[in-house]
Structures are given as C-alpha cells and as structure tokens.
Design a protein around this nucleic acid. Sequence first.
DNA 1: CAAGCCGCGTGATTGCAGTCACATGAAGCG
DNA 2: CGCTTCATGTGACTGCAATCACGCGGCTTG
Lengths: 233, 233
Amino acid sequence: MVVTPELLSAFPILKPLPQAVLADVARESLLCKFARRGIVLNAGQREEHICFLFEGRLQGVDFTIDGREVGLYFVEPGDFCGELGLFDGGAQPEYVIALTAAVVVEVPMESLRDVMMKNPGVVNVLGARLAARVRQMTYQRSLLGLPSIAQRVCCQLWTLVPNPDHNERNEAVIANPPTHMEIAIMINVSRETVTRVFQTLQNRQIVKRDGPARLLVNDLQSLRSFAEGKQEL
Amino acid sequence: MVVTPELLSAFPILKPLPQAVLADVARESLLCKFARRGIVLNAGQREEHICFLFEGRLQGVDFTIDGREVGLYFVEPGDFCGELGLFDGGAQPEYVIALTAAVVVEVPMESLRDVMMKNPGVVNVLGARLAARVRQMTYQRSLLGLPSIAQRVCCQLWTLVPNPDHNERNEAVIANPPTHMEIAIMINVSRETVTRVFQTLQNRQIVKRDGPARLLVNDLQSLRSFAEGKQEL
DNA sequence: CAAGCCGCGTGATTGCAGTCACATGAAGCG
DNA sequence: CGCTTCATGTGACTGCAATCACGCGGCTTG
C-alpha cells in the first residue's frame, strides 16, 4: 500500500525531517497490516526494515533455552521497533508480534541508514531513543526484583496507563490491553496469578473491563499506591 | 593521577583515535582507584564522566521500590560504563559499584562528547556499543525466564567465563569472581540458593576455588550442558 | 593479638505461587 | 447457525526456594 509523507510525519522521530527527505523515504516504505498474533519481526535474521507502529499494540518477545516465552517490551502507536541493526548491523535479537490487529509502516533499513548519515540530527534522535530503550529495560528489570507478585502486576499495569493521565485525573483508559498471558510473561509470573490479581482489583472497583478492547482504570491513585508498595493487596 | 595516551589506547573503543586526540582526552582524564564496595557511579545524578575500567570488576546495580538490590550487568577490564548520558543528556539510571579493588580512568563526558561530534567513526562505535548493551540486557532478561534455578546459576557462571575459552579448552579461570550474593541479585535468587548450587558443582568437580580471587572451571563442557538445560543438576 | 566483619555453608520450616484440571463465555469462522 | 478456539475464572494440591538462624573460618583493622 502507498505511504504518504504525511503519514510518516505522524511519527515524532520523523516529523523534524525536511519534506523532500520524507517523500524519498515514503516512496520506499510499505504499509502493512498484521492480524493478531502475526509476526512483525523475526528473531535471528538480519531484518531489512524498521517498523513504525500506526495502530494497535506490539510486543517484543524472546524465548528461553527451554522454550518458555519471555516478554520484553510493548510498542505503542507512534513508536517503532527493529532499529538495533541500524547501529551495529547485527541481527534482530527478539521477535516482535502483533497483540492486536495492527497497522505498521515498514521503512527499509538502508534508506533510514542513509537518512541517518546525511542528517546528523537524526543520529542524535535515534541515539536518544536507544538510550531510552536501555532505561526502559533497566526499569523493567527492577520490576522483576519485587518480591510481591501483586505489586509486580500493578506496576506493569501502571506503565500501561497513558503517561499524560498519570497525575491529571483519577481514571484512565487502556486501549487494546494485553491479555493476562501477555502480561504474565513480562513479569515472570503464571497466567493464573495475573488473573487472580485482576480479580481482586476488579472486586475493589479499581479496574473494570469495558468490552474486549478497553480496560478502565477507575482509581488511578489506588493502583499507584499498590504499585509503589505503599499499600498491600 | 596522570593518564597517558598509551593507557587510553589500551581500550578497544579509543584505540582507533588519532594520537593527538588521545593526548587531548588524556589531559582531561583522571586515574582513580576504588576500594571494594566503592561507588563508581551514582544513580539519579547527571554524572560528569564515563568510566573506563582498567583493572578489577564492577557491577551495575539498581534497587526496587522496596529497597531490594538488583544486579544488572558486570563490567570487565577494557570495557566502560556510564555512557548513557552521552546519547540523551539524561541522568545515570543505575549505580555502578566496585566488586573488587578497581582502577578506573574517568573521562569527562564533555570531552568525549566533543570527540564524538568531530569523529563520525566514534559515534558509530559508541552506537554499536549501546546496541551491544541492549542485546546483553535482552539475554540477561531471558535468563530470568528459566524455570530451573540451578540452570540460571550455571548460565550466569557461563557468561563469566572469558569468551575465548568457550570452545577452546575444557577448563578456564574466572578472575575476581563475584560473591554468591552478587551473583544472586543478577538472577533473582537468594544467596543461599547460589551457595547450594555451587556446593553441588564443587562436589562434582566442575568448579573449584583457587584462593579468594580465582575460580577454576575444571569441566567447561559439563557447565555448558547444565547451562543449556541438556543435563539436570 | 583480639575483635569484628564478611563471605560462605547448612539445616529446618513454611508459605506462596506454579501447575493441573476443568468450567464458562465470548469471538471468530466455515 | 453450530463449531472451535481462545481468554478468562477458580479450586485443589504440592513442591521448591525464600527465609531464618546459626556456625565457621579468613581477612582486615585498630
């Protein structure tokens, strides 16, 4: 499908680029749709494109030596993934799969590498993004150190709440929430355990399902205090 | 203490730089010694230097909300840490502490940033290093997904074996090995559990202590098959 | 040299989350 | 429209690692 420069400029990282460059990149890019559970990026291969997510939710996953699934990060609309090879030419280390039906713009790695070489600003932005990724992974790792399982679930839920809502209001909506299983592999617990924590949160009216594609958080402040361990579930 | 350009060129990342540049950087750098448990980098602050490790072993550590220590990575001689701020100007996310007495070259972030701007090659090398860091964190995260605790310990031990020895011979030496506690926080287990696994490994003559500062691995292949889950402990 | 600290070793106990098994209900699909 | 698949809900059981408590020996340190 055709990709317009306007579509590309919807992504914060690409927005600062001059129109002419955007047009070039757009010409070489592809608009792809993925079904739920579709494989967006394959591990082990030298993937030939960077994926910009327009709609839906993706998850980076890895597998342990014995075949267990491990969740690494979520990708939200406006963000991208698969950029590691830009820096070292190496293979994609982890799989990226679609958690919901998703719309993705695939930009060839080569064209982005060219843009990167010519526009010093882009290198900096991409470097900053990679740094942010390291920070996020560090945070996620510290989550795994929490001894209380319920706290882990609440922390993960808290990170799924759109940032602007964190302090603003006392309720929020999480669109296209991950399934219990998908949350479970992020925080090293079993699916049933996540279900049981959600059950408790629902009983206390802290969260509420709103159809299959929306999760309401009624009481952000309570969720927060559980996440921070100020209150026990 | 005085830092010579020759000392700097002992580090693979700096080696390719022209002598003149190295001399400039050397003039602004400091040679620091840290005692065991010394704090090399502080979390939360905007640290003003990158630390190149000359001798000893460092560990990046974070803390959970409730104060538990979490191990993130080890730094070996020839490597460096604290570079994240170079990319996004942000604060150092985690602490870095000395596991053994250590000799460190502290290069001011500003001078390295200058070098980076002027030598496009350096940006690429630093970018590649950051990418390697992401790959390493991904691997470490997948370790945590392993259901068998003994396997986790063996995997971590395996990563401590110097790379060149991996396939070469059937024995190896780990210099300045981390304590059981320091290994424990890397893989989310208790100190006692690490001790018990080591006890088993010693009984089977797979590893052996050689004084306080050296750990002998007698049977690399066995260690490997435990790490890969091909054999149960 | 004595004191104290620290890293390591080890047993007993226990609680908690993993696992298994199955029910239920909603959503996709031919 | 019926069938299947998948996400979720829930109870019973159990095993395993965390925790606690303590001993031991070596190293620093005053």
